[in-house]
Amino acid sequence: MSSILVFCSVQDGRIKRSSLEAMSRAREVASEAGLSLSAAILGSESGNLSSEAMSYGAEQVFTVSNPVLDSHLNAPALSALESIIREASPRMMVAASTESVKDILGALAIRCDAAVLPDVATFEMSGNQVACQRPVMAAKKLASTSSAHPLVFVSVRSGSYEASRSPVSGTVTDVPFSFDDATLRQALREVVTTASDTVDLSEARVVVSAGRGVRDESGRALVQELADITGAAIGASRAVVETGLFPATAQIGQTGKVVSPDLYFAVGISGAVQHTAGMANSRIIVAINKDADAPIFDIATYGLVGDCFTILPLLNAALKEAKD
């Protein structure tokens, strides 16, 4: 029986939630289409993570456990996934739309002769087609795109589906992998992270996001305090990242990350389409902006018109009190 293969991204020794979301949807699609569900996991932890993939419904788990795959470098990741795809010969490969996946999807499609539906909000099988809806024009429109190609890759935006368990007892196949360093022609020299990089924005339930209105260190401290009180990850607009107040990893939007938390605070953010492209699917949006006409108010659930340097100290105190 042909399958849907889900590529599971691993971070800090666990499968990313966005991969489990994609897997949960893939499981539904597979069962409707009469396909089986399998998973691909790379890296030295892959053996330990197989049972987690099975608890989300993977009947067969393909692993490549070479430690060269523990830090992201595209050439070895491509070879490993190519080997798994040849072994599994799936109808479809589904993955979460992370930076590491975006890095390899195009090249892998050429190597495996696949079609790609990238960064989708929904996907399904209809007849012999894989069909999806994907945001285009900075998420101002949703495009319906499909492919009848025999092998289709789909990458799914985080937060598009709920992750849900459905345990099966599956099998594990460790796929042979030999990799010649001499053919790499690339070397990972260093990974530069900041303290805030340890919280995965795309998995956070609450995000506090700062814009140019946050202005300086004292504004940053207020935003940090709000994040600490609400247990939030910190996001940022491009304009404020440019000032150096927040790291580029925090950027949310068309160039940055896509988030869809339960609660999103937009502090001093105007609401340009390139920013809202990355956060408009948040469940509750709170906007704090001193300009009553700022476009962010068009999508905010609760819009507070005022100066964030006045509002945030009051809000932080009130939230602290509400918590105690």
Binding site: K141, L142, T145, S147, F297, I299
Partner: peptide
């Protein structure tokens, strides 16, 4: 091409929010 396009729609709109002034 390997993918086909069959049109675009507006994304589902958000419920209108409340402005607090």
């Amino acid at each position: 091409a390997r993918t086909a396009h069959s049109g675009t729609v507006d994304p589902p709109g958000r419920e209108p929010g409340i402005k607090l002034e």
